[in-house]
Design a protein around this nucleic acid. Structure first.
Lengths: 225, 225
DNA sequence: CAAATCTAATAGTAATACTTTCATTTAATG
DNA sequence: CATTAAATGAAAGTATTACTATTAGATTTG
């Protein structure tokens, strides 16, 4: 499975970049080093000048790949959701029972993954940290609708809709499949952020408890198993 | 109830401002006009210069009240959660049955309120729009921990913990009261944002459905009623 | 009235987010 | 191998923003 995935290219929406960063060594450096830097500094303190000197290249060269740092963040997010989508499809594909399939999906979506080189050589755990801390800011702004029209969140929405289908398969008459799917995917990020920064609002700092919580919610809401 | 609340002062953490904006007319103008402007422009496109000319005052005068626009956002958020906390307490206080009390609380926390002048003359619906669009950004950044230490999110956390107590009262052996409370409070904001900007991920654009969803989740998770 | 405080206006600083230009290096092709 | 095209690097330049400092006038308070 690893080798299968590492030979796949995740087709991020072309609106997200000016020049495909996978097409050159500089582009690949931009991606891998920006993951380090954004995780370390946060998107607000990160800029292309700092990234330029970190990869011994120039600010203006990076602008030839990405319009601005927020597009880069959306690109990185799309990459993350793309990787997660592949894992979701592959790990649930063989499961026949619809309830078991759904629970397996929730596992993939809520547990911290091993840092296997699924995709090129980027650090999946750092990428996940970026998504936990920064993804919400990639769409909470005034041009969210045009970004959406451009397709910048396509992979994310496709992933959520895959979960919606699994919920419907497990319980066709459930009234809120989309709300539940959103709450699982987005809520998992939220729970991990809370674990790190709002410990008084958290029942347990154990990763597995995030899964347990959403599993419990889902089983009871859908009345399965 | 209206008159009771309109005579109450919500004690926002003093770290959030330099000079109490309620102590002068200029300060009150800053608050009411910033609600209009932040709702209209979003926090990124909003700045103190624009606010200054909107209230026919000066940038530098506003800096005497707030350190920067993000502190102002945290102040406005605290105000919102403070108003919600009062409504929560008052509207659930008389309810004796713990399950009914909890469901009433969820109603207060998830439904769009009437724009009653609960608190001074600020526009509660606009304030709510700001919280839906901007609150997540008030703590998703690198200095969240020191802001938290300063007490900037105290009212928000107190509100969530009130809900936690109600969940525990309704079902003392439930394993995830804090996770559930967070998901209700934060998830409601998320659902409203989705209704507005990610319609393909939404079951219904009816406000009441947000309440129905969280009510259903809670009833089934806690096995009440 | 006098003292203290508050506010407005202006100017100024430092950082950021780009853009432009142009020289140089690298890669592609005949 | 030579020519051409494309990609990159270096440097300088622009516009905006976030904030500070200064000062003078207005307002409040004792």
């Amino acid at each position: 499975m690893e080798s299968l995935l590492s030979s796949l290219k995740i087709n991020v929406n072309t609106c997200l970049y000016i020049k495909d960063p996978e097409s050159s060594e500089l582009g690949q450096n931009i991606i891998s080093k920006s993951i380090d830097l954004i995780e370390e500094l946060g998107i607000e303190n990160f800029n292309f000048k700092k990234l330029g000197s970190a990869i011994k290249s120039n600010e203006s060269s990076i602008y030839r790949y990405f319009e601005n740092k927020y597009k880069l963040l959306q690109y990185l997010s799309a990459l993350y959701w793309g990787i997660l989508e592949y894992r979701l499809v592959i790990e649930t594909n063989a499961v026949e029972d619809s309830s078991k399939k759904l629970l397996k999906a929730i596992k993939v979506l809520t547990l911290t993954p091993q840092n296997i080189a699924y995709y090129s050589n980027l650090d999946q755990l750092k990428l996940r940290n970026i998504v936990i801390s920064e993804f919400t800011k990639s769409y909470h702004h005034k041009h969210v609708d045009s970004d959406n029209d451009d397709g910048n969140f396509k992979i994310y929405k496709r992933l959520v809709l895959r979960l919606v289908e699994m919920i419907k398969d497990a319980r066709p008459d459930y009234a809120y499949p989309k709300s539940l799917a959103c709450q699982i995917v987005e809520g998992a990020l939220q729970q991990y952020f809370m674990q790190r920064h709002f410990t008084s609002l958290v029942d347990s700092t154990d990763d597995k408890k995030v899964y347990d919580f959403f599993k419990d919610i889902t089983i009871n809401a859908l009345k399965i198993q």
